[in-house]
């Protein structure tokens, strides 16, 4: 273990440009480990065309329950150490428990989306986040400080302070929701929704072209464009497992037509029957072969 410890000390950055930032961890009585442990955060300057994501630091592997406050405090500590200043504006996309990986609302309708053109949410991998700085200089100051910090010796490493939840935190999950808050929330949300829906309906264009090139006529009461388009595309993932219900309804002509009128029909049918019988027979033989290989025919198997 000490070997790896030795090695890991030397690693200040990864090949793909990530700076390695070790932090000492507080000790816990229950863990009884004598050696000090470290947590490693990986950071890199974030390049993006997205306006929202300018002046950002891409960081990986934030410790437990990290929030904006804890990030601010640790960066200021580091910056202070290397005599520089840096201001953090926001911690973005930090979704520690994966609660917001998927935004169902956006996927079901564009009505409630924050901006109309951004249909899908920005996706960052789990266990990563963006730290947004106020300006470019803040970012570069911080980055420089972090680079220095990553090369500092063991004894100079800072200790990370966890935000630890109390029992109350867990018990609170069981607590009733505040009714007045809930009422207010429902009310505001639904009125916003209605407003936007009205807006959307007014904007509706009357023509959409479907797969076959026909123009769909949309009535006034139709909820919105989305719903129709999606209805065409929708396929139940469970349906693919349902082999029933695919058969075509028989038409009157089918019913009338006799199946054994011509000789060839009878002959064909017999032939088909025999072929079916034969293929099933072969299939069964194969199955038996497989079962035999698995020693399925031993009546004296020695288990309960």
């Amino acid at each position: 273990m000490s070997d790896t410890e030795q090695k890991s000390k030397k690693i200040t950055s990864m090949n793909n440009g990530f700076i390695v930032l070790p932090f000492k961890l507080p000790s816990f009585d229950v863990l009884q480990s004598k050696r000090s442990c470290y947590h490693y955060i990986f950071a890199k300057k974030h390049d993006s065309n997205n306006e929202n994501e300018q002046n950002c630091l891409f960081i990986m592997n934030l410790p437990l329950l990290t929030n904006l406050e804890s990030i601010k405090s640790i960066t200021s500590q580091i910056c202070e150490k290397y005599d520089t200043v840096s201001h953090i504006e926001n911690l973005m996309y930090n979704d520690e428990f994966g609660l917001n990986e998927v935004d169902l609302s956006v996927l079901t309708s564009d009505l409630m989306a924050e901006s109309q053109d951004k249909i899908e949410k920005r996706f960052t991998p789990r266990n990563t986040a963006l730290v947004k700085f106020i300006d470019k200089s803040s970012l570069s100051n911080c980055l420089n400080a972090l680079k220095k910090y990553s090369t500092s010796s063991k004894s100079d490493l800072l200790e990370w302070k966890y935000n630890t939840p109390s029992i109350e935190t867990f018990i609170n999950f069981y607590k009733p929701l505040d009714i007045d808050y809930l009422k207010e929330d429902v009310h505001t949300h639904l009125s916003l929704f209605e407003q936007r829906e009205q807006q959307a309906q007014d904007d509706v264009q009357s023509s959409i072209v479907d797969e076959d090139g026909f123009t769909l006529v949309v009535g006034k009461n139709t909820k919105n464009l989305n719903s129709i388009r999606k209805k065409i595309l929708n396929r139940n993932p469970l349906l693919k497992n349902d082999s029933e219900g695919v058969s075509k309804p028989t038409t009157a002509v089918d019913k009338k037509a006799k199946q054994d009128f011509y000789r060839f029909q009878v002959r064909e049918r017999k032939k088909q029957e025999i072929n079916q019988l034969l293929s099933k027979f072969k299939e069964d033989q194969e199955r038996i072969k497989v079962m035999k290989e698995k020693r399925k025919f031993n009546p004296y198997k020695n288990s309960l």
Partner: peptide, 13 residues
């Protein structure tokens, strides 16, 4: 409502 959050809010209502 034809949108899932609003649908849940409506249910809550």
């Amino acid at each position: 409502p034809d949108e899932i959050t609003s649908l849940e809010k409506a249910k809550t209502a």
